[in-house]
């Protein structure tokens, strides 16, 4: 099968520094100019095009990048990723309405809260085998939602209303309906996340994750502190989810437990699997396509989850490496656990 990823890598590796900068700037410019392409074939018939760019597309991309650290890089199946998103969003909701802090001040607090809960969940859960880990994380996601649903301080099913928008930076106002400003801000956060993941991947942490994903026992024997790096992967994934949550709450002004169901975890999982686990460009492409198509094609928007479920089954069976698979040399050895 054709491997666009390897084609892309070939071009990238042959290019010299100015060419690389040009390629990167080209892609960023395309992403930045997306809000202005609404009148073209890209337009969405149901929802407002610019708001679709913010949620689901950009939000999905950010969360998929975060989840990819956990699933794609280190091979840990996390089905409760929405919990970190919810924790970020509720941190923003609570602090934003009760205290005078603004979004930019809450952002690090929300990220810290998400990372902290990542440790609380990760330390016991990561001692377990892969499929048990999946179930535990799924349970964690549900517990967070049920707690939000039943605690008076978190507004029960009514959620939290009147969450403030971010204050202006560099004179740019965050009005409720100026979706493209939110989109560009998210784009900056996404670029930061990409930068973080790419730097980590080529360093010690990335190599440790890679070895854990391929063969955890061998990695442990070779002296890789596997448990420590697994918790790290978990916590970093959580931090990205928390950042997405803070920003989401600040954008929608209103959050409720219904926004944080298991379905969100599965949707993000579908984005990662569809795009290609472990390859950040594939994951981004997957999130863009799966975030965008249900709003573009009317038939899909009713049966969104149905289609996402089908995507999971079909991709796993026919193209388990996803749309843009990871680099050949990074591919896993045949799994030793299933003879």
């Amino acid at each position: 099968m054709i491997n666009l990823r390897d084609k892309g890598a070939e071009i990238w590796e042959k290019a010299n520094r100015p060419q690389r900068v040009a390629i990167a700037i080209g892609w960023i410019a395309l992403a930045v100019s997306l809000p202005f392409l609404g009148g073209t074939i890209l337009n969405t018939p149901i929802a407002d095009y610019q708001s679709v760019l913010v949620y689901p597309i950009a939000m999905f991309v950010l969360m998929a990048i975060g989840l990819n650290i956990v699933i794609g890089k280190s091979g840990l199946l996390d089905l409760g990723y929405v919990a970190f998103f919810a924790i970020g969003a509720y941190t923003m909701g609570l602090l934003g309405t009760r205290t005078g802090l603004n979004t930019w001040e809450i952002l690090p607090i929300g990220i810290a809260m998400a990372m902290f809960s990542g440790i609380i969940l990760g330390v016991p859960a990561l001692k377990l085998r892969g499929d048990y880990l999946a179930i535990i994380t799924l349970g964690f996601g549900e517990i967070v939602r049920i707690v939000a649903l039943n605690l008076g301080a978190l507004g029960r099913s009514g959620g939290i209303i009147g969450i403030p928008t971010p204050p202006p930076i560099f004179g740019v106002e965050y009005a409720f309906d100026s979706h493209r400003v939110y989109y560009w801000t998210l784009l900056v956060i996404i670029l930061l996340a990409i930068w973080m993941v790419r730097r980590l991947s080529v360093r010690r942490a990335g190599r440790a994750w890679e070895s854990i994903r391929q063969d955890e026992d061998a990695a442990e024997l070779m002296g890789v502190p596997t448990f420590k790096y697994k918790v790290w992967a978990f916590v970093l994934g959580a931090s990205v989810g928390g950042a997405a949550g803070v920003f989401y709450a600040s954008k929608t002004l209103f959050i409720a437990p219904d926004n944080f169901t298991l379905q969100i975890s599965i949707l993000i999982l579908a984005c990662v699997v569809f795009g290609g686990m472990g390859n950040i460009w594939g994951v981004i492409a997957g999130a863009v396509i799966l975030g965008y198509l249900p709003d573009r094609i009317r038939f899909l928007s009713d049966a969104r989850l149905l289609v996402f479920g089908l995507v999971l089954v079909i991709m796993m069976n026919l193209r388990p490496d996803g749309l843009l698979p990871r680099k050949k040399r990074e591919k896993a050895l045949p799994n030793k656990e299933n003879p």
């Binding site: 892969g130 079909i314 796993m316 799994n335």
Partner: peptide, 11 residues
């Protein structure tokens, strides 16, 4: 491996 059937099952 372990993950692929699980993801397929979730689908």
């Amino acid at each position: 491996g372990v993950l692929a059937p699980l993801i397929s099952a979730i689908g």
